[in-house]
């Protein structure tokens, strides 16, 4: 088989539940060795899409392939190439961690010795060796999630699906999970993950598809998505409110665009063509004797990207929540949203 055949390819994928088009003509291509992030709010159709690709749901329209194997016609082959870890731990409560891994290995005809060795290695890798012979009922949420991922890896599949791998995990466990995912990729795995966390997609994914209401609304690298909607900004807080007009004039002259003013907070937000323009602005302001209280240079965040693409943020289901719409951006938290406009 050709090395250039992508790990996952979907064309015009459609899945309807009654009236609802849960997945609506989605195209997807995940290249080998990539971490591909599917980003979207709750109910956007991420899990449905993953389930279709994992042979768990039938395809209504379109087609999907895993390493060139048709998901509809060769489900058994697809299942042999796939490890799936869902939002909820799918391990056996009645068995110990080791027994669980042995069960899944034996079901897939891994010989007993290899299974035992791989199970031990995985438990060590996932920091579960101490709990190897404890029943799962005694496990914390994070431990279950790690064991679940270990269970997906026991046959060393070249492709892993992770459905919201860190939803509900505490920050520390979340960081461990990210580390593990990076290691998988370093070992040659291809990873397709869904997430509703922008920073997760930003941190992990080589490529991101933004999904909303079953449709793919954008795709690209994290940087591409960010630069598609905005540039970096320089936020300045002045000591004296009265100096705002002159500071604005200086900034306008240097970057060729008027800054956004927030006089109540003695703040101006300067759009930058290039990040190093920030230095020019600061030096010139000092030459003019304008005192600066604080300085911040920001790239647009994926949050802003998401808002710009879908008209709502990741944790809202409908387009009603246009968070940054108001012109009353006096508080710090809303100020950065102005960039999107």
């Amino acid at each position: 088989m050709d090395e250039t055949i992508p790990a996952v390819r979907a064309e015009g994928l459609v899945k309807t539940f009654g009236e609802l088009r849960a997945v609506d003509r989605v195209d997807l291509e995940v290249r080998r060795g990539q971490v591909f992030g599917v980003l979207g709010p709750n109910g956007a159709g991420k899990t449905t899409m993953l389930k279709i690709l994992a042979t768990l749901l039938t395809i209504d329209e379109g087609r999907a392939e895993v390493f060139g194997h048709d998901v509809r016609r060769e489900p058994h082959v697809v299942r042999q190439l796939l490890g799936v870890t869902g939002q909820y731990a799918s391990v056996d409560e009645n068995l110990t961690a080791t027994e669980n891994l042995m069960l899944f290995a034996r079901l897939q005809a891994v010989d007993r010795q290899t299974a035992r060795r791989t199970a031990a290695t995985l438990l060590e890798q996932f920091d579960l060796s101490q709990a190897a012979n404890k029943p799962i009922s005694a496990f914390s949420g994070g431990m279950r999630r790690r064991l679940d991922l270990a269970a997906s890896l026991i046959t060393r599949p070249p492709l892993i699906f992770l459905d919201e791998p860190t939803t509900g995990l505490d920050p520390r466990t979340r960081g461990q999970m990210w580390e593990t995912i990076r290691e998988l990729v370093a070992n040659g795995c291809t990873v397709l993950l869904t997430t509703q966390y922008l920073d997760e997609a930003d941190q992990l994914a080589d490529r991101i598809a933004v999904i909303d209401h079953g449709r793919k609304v954008a795709e690209g690298t994290s940087d591409e998505l960010k630069s598609s909607i905005g540039r970096s900004t320089l936020t300045l807080n002045l000591v004296e409110r009265s100096e705002i007009p002159s500071a604005a004039e200086v900034a306008h002259r240097l970057v060729g665009e008027p800054p956004t003013l927030t006089p109540e907070a003695r703040r101006l937000t300067v759009p930058l063509q290039r990040s190093d323009q920030a230095v020019d602005v600061l030096v010139t302001l000092r030459d003019h004797g304008i005192a600066i209280e604080s300085v911040n240079v920001q790239k647009p965040s994926l949050d802003e990207v998401f808002l710009a693409l879908t008209g709502h943020d990741t944790h809202e289901d409908d387009a009603g929540g246009r968070a940054g719409d108001g012109a009353d951006s006096t508080t710090d938290s809303t100020s950065h949203l102005e960039i999107v406009r």
């Binding site: 088989m1 058994h76 791989t118 290695t121 040659g188």
Partner: peptide, 14 residues
């Protein structure tokens, strides 16, 4: 892990 990844190009039973 010492064991290699399963080869996606191998012929697998249908």
């Amino acid at each position: 892990l010492t064991t290699a990844l399963r080869d996606p190009s191998a012929t697998l039973p249908r």
